[in-house]
């Protein structure tokens, strides 16, 4: 039964990758990559159960954290062209 879940997630990963390649804007690509990361978390968890080693969950947890931070970092880079510049904060910051 895990196989069915893994297959579903793999199919979706292919679809998201297609979106990431097609674009058309950079935001579409970031959205696709973020979504791809969520699916990676799922597939790590499912594969861990499939092979009977739930220790994989630790990796899934860490991947979820890194995926979020990566998305925010890439977005910030595209917004401001810089990651650590000191600038006066504006009222409508992200």
């Amino acid at each position: 039964m895990y196989i069915a879940g893994i297959a579903a997630v793999l199919v979706t990963m292919a679809l998201t990758l297609a979106r990431a390649f097609m674009g058309p804007t950079v935001y579409d690509r970031i959205l696709a990559v973020n979504s791809f990361g969520t699916k990676t978390v799922l597939i790590i968890a499912l594969y861990g159960y499939f092979t009977g080693r739930p220790d994989f969950l630790d990796i899934a947890l860490v991947y979820a954290l890194i995926n979020f931070i990566g998305t925010i970092a890439v977005l910030k880079f595209f917004e401001y062209g810089d990651l650590g510049r000191d600038r006066p904060s504006q009222p409508d910051d992200i």
Binding site: L31, V41, P54, A60, A64, T71, I72, I94
Partner: peptide
């Protein structure tokens, strides 16, 4: 651990979506 993953995804995915939407509007 599964609950932790779930809770974390439920907090972070709307934040990422909001940041994306706002950046796209800004762009």
């Amino acid at each position: 651990k599964l609950i932790l993953i779930l809770v974390f995804l439920f907090f972070s995915s709307p934040t990422a979506a909001h940041a994306l939407a706002k950046a796209a509007l800004h762009g």
